[in-house]
Amino acid sequence: MSESRETATHPAVEPVVAQRGSSRFAAGEGPLPDPAGSHYERRIRSFQPRRSRVTTSQAEALLKRWPDWGLDIDGKRVLDLDEMFGGLPVVLEIGFGMGEATAQMAAADRGTGILAVDVHTPGQGNLLGLADRNGLENVRVANGDAIILLREMLDPGALDGCRVYFPDPWPKKRHHKRRLIQPDFLTLLASRMKPGAVLHCATDWEEYAEQMLEVLTAHPGFENTQADGGYAPRPAFRPLTRFEGQGLDKGHVVHDLLFHRK
């Protein structure tokens, strides 16, 4: 859609800084800063909401598409994924950044629904804008804590796959407990995945890759797709992202891990 038609549909929106604890959007019109509020226990989180600027185009995409394609993770309802995605198989993506790779994968496979979770408002707006411009009706954007989504809002066996690309490595040893790929997380995730569904992780942090491989190999709910029990080649469906390209330019080695749900 052209800039002029977008402006005609929605009032002009000035760039703003999205901050934790505040929101420019009314309930239902855009992502809320803390959708689960105090409904659930305090615990160590694997993510840290970032303060950053929401551009005019991102804000316009949020105002236009959030009511239909966005949802806040409030933990108060169980999602009907069949209704949400028109019966498509659904893959959960945890942490999509600015959404470019998500949009590419959605365009290349319109027969799969992608439930994309993040807490970064500019990224949410960017992905919704990409989905809108490219007619990607198989994308939904979820705002908030993926743990609450999995535990409170998805039925057992609801997911046909899960993608965790370049999660925060929390490199300092005292922060390793914040890493997402841990035994308890895998147990919860396994309960929400269909048998045979694939968990696909990727990281350019060598030590985290080793931990992922060790934890996944030891978990009774997952089985490595690689006969040698090691890392997998990057599958063609995972795009080479700008972030990944920058890492490769610096000499980083990217590891992909693909495990089946037993």
Rank of each mutant, 00 (worst) to 15 (best):
L130H: 00
A106Y: 10
G125L: 06
E100Q: 10
L62V: 14
G99K: 00
L127E: 07
G111H: 06
R42K: 14
F47K: 07
I94D: 01
T102W: 05
M105N: 06
A101W: 01
G70Y: 07
E137P: 02
N134Q: 15
I73S: 07
P67R: 08
R43H: 07
A108G: 12
L127R: 10
E100K: 11
G123N: 06
F85Q: 03
A101I: 00
K76W: 07
R65F: 08
E100I: 05
E100G: 05
S57K: 07
D74A: 11
T102H: 07
F85N: 04
T112D: 07
R45V: 15
P49L: 07
L79C: 09
K64N: 08
T56W: 02
R43S: 08
G111T: 06
E60C: 09
A131Y: 04
S46Y: 15
I73C: 08
G70D: 05
T112P: 13
V54G: 01
V54E: 01
G111N: 11
P49D: 11
E137D: 15
P49N: 13
F47L: 12
T102G: 07
F96E: 00
Q104E: 14
G95I: 05
A103F: 11
I114F: 15
I94R: 04
T102R: 01
L63F: 03
G75A: 09
A103N: 02
M105H: 05
A131P: 02
D80F: 08
D74T: 10
R53L: 04
H39K: 15
A59Y: 01
A107H: 08
D80E: 04
T56G: 09
A116C: 10
R51W: 01
